[in-house]
């Protein structure tokens, strides 16, 4: 199930996911299929090994040079008890958040309206309403972001 809190969560969510990723990343995060899929799908890059990614733009890069969106997706996957600012993810990350949410409970913090271009269901934690399409999400979230 996808749960979304819109707006400021203070200390309850990690706002700067870039800094958090730099300090908590573990090599084995890049070993699973999901990591390879998002790195290919979002960054158009290829995992060479757990320390090295081949980017078509930047050449050989370490995991800390992945895009902000991929880093946040990896945090959501690998730190399931934490809440992360998913406004560091572009709309091209939305389908991967939904994919994770089909497999496990995912709670994210959004400071903007993310565009989910597919069928989805989400619980808006601000007022405990459930939305199942973009129009409902836009109307439910507009007052918070």
């Amino acid at each position: 199930m996808l749960k979304i809190y819109f707006g400021d969560m203070k200390e309850e969510a990690v706002y700067n996911t870039e800094v958090y990723f730099k300090n908590v990343f573990e090599d084995h995060w890049l070993e699973d299929d999901f990591a390879r899929e998002i790195i290919k799908g979002v960054d158009k890059s290829e995992v060479i090994d757990t320390h090295l990614i081949k980017s078509p733009v930047l050449g050989m890069i370490p995991p800390t040079m992945l895009s902000g969106g991929v880093k946040t997706l990896l945090l959501i996957k690998n730190c399931p008890n934490m809440v992360f600012n998913a406004s560091t993810c572009g709309d091209n990350c939305a389908k991967y958040i939904l994919k994770l949410a089909r497999e496990q409970d995912v709670t994210i913090n959004l400071h903007h309206i993310m565009r989910f271009n597919t069928r989805f269901e989400a619980l808006i934690l601000n007022d405990n309403t459930t939305v199942s399409n973009m129009e409902q999400l836009i109307i439910a979230s507009a007052r918070y972001v």
Binding site: K44, L58, G68
Partner: peptide, 26 residues
């Protein structure tokens, strides 16, 4: 030597957003 950005700015505040992996952090 790998990437070149060109930005056009004409106001006091510009916002850059969009999909992930478009080069913002780079």
């Amino acid at each position: 030597n790998r990437v070149s950005f060109t930005l056009i700015l004409e106001r006091n505040i510009s916002i850059i957003r969009g999909d992930s992996a478009t080069g913002k952090t780079t």
